[in-house]
């Protein structure tokens, strides 16, 4: 009986991965097609090999950047949901994106005269990641722990924080010189199309390290989903795991936001669709499934945008779908 059920579960996992894994190269191919032959067909022009390789030299880092950002968002969203015991909250919903924008604005504002130093994308990234880390630690300590893991408080705090930070950033941007203003815009209005490609080379090793560290702990996450107390009594040093996860989340979210900008609902969408189709509580398949689905959604979405000649940005589509899905989840689960 047990063996049969176990087998059925594994069959399901294998079947799902057999479908979604091959979709990934297919999506990449579609994206490349959308940027090359689809365009040339539409314009009625031949593509020369030189042109093709010049497009590829932009499309490949684009693909890498999109995949890295999407995978990071999926991994940290799932780990965030496990530590907050919520199926609906994700880091972007509690103001991580606005925090990024505010950090960038303050950096440009404060150092506009010295300049130079903070324009290096790497230094800039580490400063933003540091600020996000500090904020997430504070938020977690003071909001979640003092309210007994009440995610409603966290959500409300995030909402207020986003409002304050966005308006504060806007105010600072008004005070800036035009020059500085454009620099802030360039740093914060990143989208998939004008991706910060110099960051891609930072993103890949960071992605590798973060995903190895997260996947390595998949069994610990399984236990942590029983809650703080129960997992502590099963031998998980919860406080340590919590801090470690806050670091992963801050690093991952700041990198993803720096790469492709704010994508509030991608994590929610990927993680919950993965849960829905994998029907398991085990984190190993969930992490992989969510990561693949997240990358698929972003790349397929972007290909569709290219094919439709960029009528609407992919972030808008994903946020629209993700937002509707969130409503559905709240209504169905009747909790946050």
């Amino acid at each position: 009986m047990e063996i049969k059920v176990g087998k059925q579960r594994n069959v399901r996992l294998i079947a799902v991965f057999a479908v979604i894994l091959p979709l990934f190269p297919a999506a990449c191919a579609l994206y490349i097609y959308s940027r090359t032959y689809a365009k040339s067909l539409r314009l009625g022009l031949e593509i020369t090999p030189a042109e093709f390789s010049s497009i590829m030299s932009r499309a490949v880092p684009g693909l890498l950047g999109m995949s890295a950002a999407a995978i990071l968002i999926a991994l940290v969203s799932l780990s965030f949901q496990t530590i907050t015991q919520s199926r609906i909250l994700t880091p972007s919903m509690i103001g991580f994106d606005s925090l990024f924008i505010a950090t960038q604005t303050v950096l440009v504002f404060a150092f506009s005269t010295t300049g130079g130093l903070f324009e290096s994308p790497y230094i800039n990234y580490f400063i933003s990641a540091g600020v996000m880390l500090a904020c997430s630690m504070v938020m977690y300590r003071f909001i979640l722990q003092s309210s007994g893991n009440n995610v409603i408080y966290l959500l409300m705090f995030g909402l207020v924080l986003s409002g304050v930070l966005e308006n504060g950033s806007r105010y600072l941007q008004l005070l800036m010189s035009n020059n500085d203003y454009y620099r802030v815009q360039a740093a914060t209005n990143v989208t998939v199309n004008n991706m910060n490609t110099s960051l891609v080379f930072l993103a890949l090793p960071a992605l590798l390290i973060i995903s190895v560290l997260i996947l390595y702990r998949h069994r610990t996450y399984n236990v942590m989903s029983l809650g703080a107390e129960q997992s502590q009594s099963l031998g998980v040093f919860y406080a340590k795991e919590l801090n470690l996860n806050l670091i992963f989340i801050a690093l991952g979210m700041s990198l993803a936001t720096a790469l492709i900008g704010s994508l509030t609902f991608l994590g929610l969408l990927a993680v919950n669709v993965a849960r829905e189709i994998l029907k398991t509580h085990r984190h190993f398949p969930l992490f992989i499934g969510a990561a693949v689905l997240s990358a698929l959604a972003l790349i397929l979405g972007q290909s569709a945008v290219e094919l439709l000649q960029g009528a609407i940005p992919v972030t808008a589509i994903i946020n629209l779908v993700g937002c509707s899905y969130m409503f559905y989840l709240i209504l169905r689960e009747n909790r946050i």
Partner: peptide, 16 residues
């Protein structure tokens, strides 16, 4: 917050 079977739950007891 998760949906697991009795068997899965009891297996968690072996975690330490």
């Amino acid at each position: 917050s998760i949906r697991i079977t009795v068997g899965d739950l009891v297996e968690f007891g072996r975690f330490p």
